[in-house]
């Protein structure tokens, strides 16, 4: 019987290839149909939010268009802060720059703070996940620390670093590191015993085990942690910049409030929301790419 299988196996291979080639031919014919299908599905996803946004703008206009309204209506926002919307990257010198540039400066801080948090979080999480006692001892402390609001860290951090720039980065780090640590530790704890046995039989050393088994096996958990972490760091940067100054998007809001430019604040809020959304999706996309095939068995 096994001889049969052997003779069959090479014979079926060209067949499989031929089938693949035959399959490739009709695809151009189906392309127009699939194009219109993709277009339809894009429309189905894009049209509803656009309608909702338009509705909200109309209601907002009606509510705030009355004279004496405390908040500006959309038309007023456009009139006063239209330039901020239209040209995000202007630079008039003296710190008078477009919101796009401000966002980039804030993102740079987030990149440093969150980058450190990711490295430290994954490493510490991996070590903790390997040891039951470390997990039992440290988990309650992490659970408490992770609920401390970002801004509560700021005075301590200012006192420690004596400078606003590293303080802002530290606040981002300390805010976003906890979910990374906790999720990585849980991911490492959940590595199936079978994978550990494979590693033991192959006599993988600690470093090989870390890179070849632990990180890929825990990757789905790690990316969940990173995704929560990046959201928190974006929350933290805006708050931290409001207090520490500089040219970031957070400080811009504070500055606009002090000079009563409410329209500018509204535009900045939209910028912050959109960038936060993009960050979240970016980490999710990287995670989906890196962990492809990791889940399911």
């Amino acid at each position: 019987m096994s001889a049969n299988v052997q003779r069959l196996a090479p014979a079926t291979m060209p067949d499989a290839k031929a089938a693949a080639e035959v399959f490739a031919l009709p695809t151009p014919a189906t392309r127009p149909g699939s194009w219109s299908k993709t277009l339809a599905s894009i429309a189905a996803n894009v049209v509803p939010p656009l309608v909702v946004v338009a509705l909200i703008l109309v209601i907002w206009q009606i509510l705030c268009a009355t004279p004496g309204a405390s908040l500006p209506a959309p038309s007023q926002v456009w009139a006063e802060a239209g330039e901020l919307i239209v040209s995000p990257f202007f630079d008039y010198g003296q710190g008078d720059i477009g919101l796009g540039l401000r966002v980039l400066i804030s993102l740079q801080r987030v990149a440093i703070g969150f980058g450190i948090a990711a490295l430290v979080g994954v490493t510490v999480g991996a070590v903790i996940g390997q040891s039951i006692w470390a997990m039992r001892g440290l988990d309650p402390i992490f659970q408490i620390l992770r609920t401390v609001p970002p801004l509560a860290w700021l005075p301590l951090s200012l006192a420690a670093f004596m400078d606003s720039a590293p303080s802002a980065i530290f606040v981002i780090f300390i805010t976003s590191v906890w979910p990374v640590i906790i999720n990585t530790a849980v991911g490492v704890r959940n590595i199936p015993q079978d994978y550990r046995n494979v590693a033991r039989i192959l006599q993988l050393n600690q470093v090989e085990f870390f890179f070849k088994i632990m990180i890929p096996a825990a990757a789905p958990y790690i990316f969940t942690g990173l995704r929560i972490g990046v959201g928190l760091s974006w929350l933290a940067i805006v708050a931290a910049e409001m207090l520490t100054g500089g040219v970031g998007i957070g400080f811009f809001i504070w500055d606009a409030w002090n000079s009563s430019r409410l329209s500018d604040i509204i535009v900045a809020l939209v910028y912050i929301g959109v960038v936060g959304f993009i960050l979240d999706r970016l980490v999710a996309a990287v995670g989906a790419f890196v962990t492809r095939g990791t889940t399911a068995n």
Partner: peptide, 13 residues
């Protein structure tokens, strides 16, 4: 002393 595991234990990634 190589082991063939019941549930194959291949690394899915």
């Amino acid at each position: 002393r190589a082991v063939v595991f019941q549930n194959h234990s291949l690394l899915p990634w």
